[in-house]
Design a protein around this nucleic acid. Sequence first.
DNA 1: CACCAGTGTTGATAATATAACACCGATAGG
DNA 2: CCTATCGGTGTTATATTATCAACACTGGTG
Lengths: 264, 264
Amino acid sequence: MSSTVVKALMLLEHFSEDEPELGLSELARRSGVDKAAVHRMLGAMAETGLVEQQADSRLYRLGAGVLRLARVRETAFPISSIVQPILDTLSAETGETAHASLISGRALANIATCESKKGSRVSLIAGEVLPYHSTASGLAVLAFGGDALLQRVLSTSLEAKTRFTVTEASELGARVDVTREKGFSESDQTNEEDVHGIAAPVFDRTGMACGAVSVSTPSHRMTEVQRDLTIGAVLRAGSAITDGLGGQRPRSYADLIAPLMTGS
Amino acid sequence: MSSTVVKALMLLEHFSEDEPELGLSELARRSGVDKAAVHRMLGAMAETGLVEQQADSRLYRLGAGVLRLARVRETAFPISSIVQPILDTLSAETGETAHASLISGRALANIATCESKKGSRVSLIAGEVLPYHSTASGLAVLAFGGDALLQRVLSTSLEAKTRFTVTEASELGARVDVTREKGFSESDQTNEEDVHGIAAPVFDRTGMACGAVSVSTPSHRMTEVQRDLTIGAVLRAGSAITDGLGGQRPRSYADLIAPLMTGS
DNA sequence: CACCAGTGTTGATAATATAACACCGATAGG
DNA sequence: CCTATCGGTGTTATATTATCAACACTGGTG
């Protein structure tokens, strides 16, 4: 069912900002894969520089190869450099943390962020993988990313990240419909406690959503005024990023959000 | 002998700044792997977001996953951000193109560059993979990266990149010895025509070389004066990077290069 | 229009790399 | 000194993968 390559690459998901170095046994435990298999996979990935092993502690971490690959991609398709300034203004306009993510296989990859300047803010782990079903960004992508993607996600089991997470396919489908009608998505504490998210889709040049831009606000601070302000700002940012990437908004979507994109 | 994971990841080496998008057949041809196998491997890597397939043209390119991974690594171990300013001053001091690379599996990965401002300059492809045996950076790493690495490289077949490339293991060993005695490495047109390189090793905290910093000068422009200037600047840059990464120079090496690090 | 050369994709079967298990030496703590 | 970790290693049955061929499709050409 699942190829060894996928299994090996899934191991990389366990490296995070908080735990950038992991031991063999630890990694085997978390991934639920046999220790010997993990050892072989890490060895294979080390050969190509995707991971590297500390000589002394024997811990593994992401290798220099990922930097090289990112450079190749970013040089050819400068996404991050286009997105970052837009996120900065989005964060400034709303006063909250903004981030952008792109479709990356079976999940969303957070590729750029701008944290709020406030002391109390939503702080997210760099390079986190965001599930489609529990985040505002995910909803935005599901709503405008085509039926194939939506069906695939609906047919998977939806993990409950908090007590508010939608775990029923039918209800998730309903939320996607709402998102499609409104032109933006909204989620309250479905991925993390006390985090409210508002997101807008980003389109590629075929008119399909390829990612999303989102603003995360502490739930207790979210007011009606703040909400309206954020929706307009997020939609403008989404459009700006779509344009920056050479993407194309579907006509119906452009008409839909036009009245909402008030403000400067 | 060779695992499927390695074979799959080797496919990624064929993506470059010049050719960021490749078709299935093209990739199969270059890698010498069966088309069907390449198809399955790319599919597997697409599942995890390491590559992505254009919906319309069906071409493959590096995916958003690599950006995410690079963010995780760079947040935890901010190498690029430490190296870049040092490269900038190195390039300013020498007037030529400077770059830094790290050990990445079986080769060196170029992770940061600063191009010369001159019209005639050495321009290198972003994210290029540098062979150990044909580059000044490679020599520097081989000389100070431990015997295990050196033996492994010496036992492989050395591809002739130009008519000056060293392809005999014995001669390469001799050049490594010279490098070890001098404290820096030098190569003239061994990797590319009309490119002269001078490189210094970068050490990790165990005192082993983990990478190198190098200045590439058009061969015809390399004079005695320029050479002395460059050697001092490269050695200073190497030391600065080693310090910035929390690395540790071996005592013997520090004594060796001390008299050469003249200038500011 | 038929043809051709190219593409991406999919099955079938045979070959082989892989998963699983127990095991090893080393290290650290009680 | 015993126990519980750790990283790493063999070995064999098994499941995945490589290989080959054929497929449907495209765009260009006679």
